[in-house]
């Protein structure tokens, strides 16, 4: 796919929609588009991965292995969302496995190319990392809400502050 088509696609994805025009051009030039059939493992927890993925269509799941419980699905991600940030920030050592739950279409950007672009062009780096931080911050808040277990069967009792202070 030629870069102008890719740029058009990136313009419509939530992750990249806010990027300035020249950053979009550079990101498009460093990317390709790929179809991923349902069931495909894109990368494995603990393994390495060289790419950042932006989902255009379909759904991917992140899973972590827990001894005795096998692969636990912790999050599903859909169109406009980013997967594989460790490739960019952490030299590709993956913290979870990513699996296509449905036939999916993703924009694939080679992490090493992005790193080079970030180093060579601080403006590009700033804008890309800003989007990355925003996406990760949303994911962090969502994870906190998940942790709160808001729909647990019995409401968590309000702590007894009197006895706490006495203790």
């Amino acid at each position: 796919m030629d870069p102008s088509q890719l740029r058009f696609i990136l313009e419509e994805l939530r992750f990249s929609a806010m990027l300035p025009a020249e950053v979009l051009d550079q990101l498009a030039a460093a990317s390709t588009i790929k179809q991923i059939p349902a069931g495909t493992v894109i990368f494995r927890e603990g393994g390495t991965n060289d790419n950042l993925y932006l989902i255009r269509d379909g759904r991917l799941a992140l899973e972590m292995s827990v001894p005795g419980r096998g692969a636990v699905r912790i999050l599903t991600l859909g169109a406009g969302e980013m997967v594989g940030w460790s490739a960019l920030l952490d030299e590709g050592k993956m913290t979870a496995s990513a699996i296509a739950v449905e036939d999916s279409e993703v924009v694939v950007a080679e992490a090493e190319k992005l790193r080079q672009l970030c180093r060579a062009n601080r403006d590009f780096g700033y804008h890309l990392m800003e989007q990355m931080a925003a996406a990760l911050s949303k994911r962090l808040v969502a994870t906190r809400l998940q942790l709160l277990d808001l729909f647990a069967a019995s409401p968590t009792p309000v702590p007894d502050r009197t006895s706490e202070s006495e203790a």
Binding site: R14, R59, I74
Partner: peptide
């Protein structure tokens, strides 16, 4: 969507606010 997945669940996993986001 569900906060905790289970074996065989093919639906969404994650908090409900993500559905609004998407």
């Amino acid at each position: 969507t569900v906060d905790r997945s289970a074996l065989g669940w093919m639906g969404n996993v994650g908090v409900v606010t993500l559905l609004l986001e998407r």
